[in-house]
Design a protein around this nucleic acid. Sequence first.
DNA 1: AATCCGTGGCA
DNA 2: TTGCCAAGGAT
Length: 360
Amino acid sequence: MTQNFAKFLIKWYSLYSRKLPWRNSGDPYKIWLSEVILQQTRVDQGLAYYNSFVEHYPSIHELSNAHIDEVMKLWQGLGYYSRARNLYAGAQQIVREFNGVFPADYKSIRSIKGIGDYTAGAIASIAFNLPYPAIDGNVLRVITRIASISTPVDTTAGKSEIHNFLMEIIDKNQAGTFNQALMELGATICKPKSPLCNECPVNEFCIAFIENTHQNFPVKRTKLKPKNRYFLYLIPTFMIGDEKNTLMGKRSGKDIWFNLYDFPLIEASKEEDLSNSQLPEILQNTFTNPDFTVLKISGLIKHQLSHQTIYTRFLHLDFASLPKFVVPNDYRYIPLNMIHELAIPRLIDRYLSGKNVLIY
DNA sequence: AATCCGTGGCA
DNA sequence: TTGCCAAGGAT
């Protein structure tokens, strides 16, 4: 399959590829510039920036002698501005370490600021015809479909599997063309949604096409979709001697904020269960002594964690006696001025200092 | 391994 | 309209 795959792919590329200014330039600088501009960026969006950069800085020499302010100005609006800073730093690095000549070996290319695995492979293959794969998002999608690879692509195992597969099918005599063709195929035919499989030059090699499973690829590590949680924190206050206290406990178990301290917590599965109308019942089910007054209830606060979104309200209760709970627990008496001696979640710290994000 | 960086396309 | 997503590199 290998030979015909590359043959069909490259034939298709020669006939149908978009004509872009950096293609066939053979200039490592221009290829580098285009690859950096196209990181996370569509061709349509980056094209004008590429032309502008080439005009202002025809070679590494001009770029390395530019002023950073001007470089940033030219990059303005394109986003991911560290790319511009790294590009500039990279130009100076090439002047300093490689006498101003773009290095022609993978290791040196990879060492340049802002050049990672993908960009190094792209430059090495396109500018120097070295047999390295260039694995961008397009290639990831194309290859997982062709080879029906279900290993998540955003894992070390998945990346290495794709890399190994590519090393088997890459045309080592024209790796640059092969890589560009693969990316072009991903961008124009093997699209994320509604791929144009009937126009695909290599569909006969594609397991996903044959099995009609293209929509299953690429697989990404199931990022636990942020789950919503609804908290009601009770902040009871009461006097012990002449000192005002509250209750806090050390969190345990498998949940978030393990070993941090927080207030008595009521958690519900939906926001309505914590609405004002539910409060009397909640309090009745929580405390055995009803000798408290409700001082204040906060608005709804949104707190974003990596894998969950927590909506919280804080309810301040002032007790005439020591709070007694229906369900036994390990809450401890904490003088108010001692709260900040304890490790507490950012949500609570921000609430206490008035720096939280209110939904309403 | 997880998070941040920006913008535009898309449902 | 809002919210989600996009896969590169550095930290």
